[in-house]
């Protein structure tokens, strides 16, 4: 293994779980989150030498991940089922399953871009300029998307709870 390979494997081991969590918040499905992380890491490997020199591996990986997730959400036809020869792993029950389900439903009803802004701004603690750079838009757009996302969350959670109920039935 070359130095690049060793560094890449080490990066996947250390940063893979964090990237997968971000991907899950962006897409809401653990399997799809792993696919997104894999796509992002494959792209990262090609540009490893260039971005390693610029000390921007983490930022590059997150940018690729977010953009891939947003692009995937725009697709009309999306893979809903996966053929696998292994039994899917059983997720341990959460401490508060109702809160988990409610939070997931609320996030799922956000548009992809607003959701990405909310996740990057409030989960990754990134400044507005970094979020704008990652999404390839202006800082004003990030601010407006964040405000709209928060307003949508307030609306969904407080003023129109029947939407959540409908989503739960669906």
């Amino acid at each position: 293994m070359t130095g690049r390979d060793t560094e890449f494997v080490e990066f996947v081991r250390t940063r893979g779980p964090s990237l997968r969590r971000t991907a899950f918040l962006l897409c809401g499905d653990w399997h799809r989150a792993e696919d997104l992380v894999q796509i992002a890491l494959l792209k990262l490997f090609r540009a490893w030498s260039r971005i390693k020199a610029a000390e921007a591996v983490e930022s590059y990986a997150r940018t690729v991940l977010v953009r891939t997730a947003v692009d995937e959400s725009r697709r009309i036809v999306r893979r809903r089922e996966r053929v696998s020869d292994s039994v899917p792993e059983v997720v341990a029950p959460a401490e508060n399953p109702d809160a988990t389900l409610d939070a997931r439903r609320v996030l799922a009803m956000l548009p992809a871009r607003q959701r990405a802004v909310i996740v990057l701004r409030y989960w990754e603690d990134l400044p507005i300029e970094d979020v704008a750079q990652m999404l390839g838009c202006a800082e004003g757009t990030v601010k407006s998307q964040a405000a709209k996302g928060l307003a949508t969350l307030r609306k969904l959670l407080a003023r129109e709870p029947h939407l959540l109920a409908m989503e739960a039935v669906r």
């Binding site: 390979d5 969590r21 090609r46 792993e89 809160a99 988990t100 939070a103 969350l153």
Partner: peptide
């Protein structure tokens, strides 16, 4: 908001991504 996002995460399943397999795939693709 961070608490809301943490609630959405819930309990994580085990990661099935194998770094060595991913490296092999990346090398082949390259």
């Amino acid at each position: 908001i961070r608490e809301l996002l943490g609630d959405a995460l819930g309990t994580e399943p085990d990661m099935r991504l194998d770094p060595d397999a991913l490296l092999t795939q990346a090398q082949r693709r390259e």
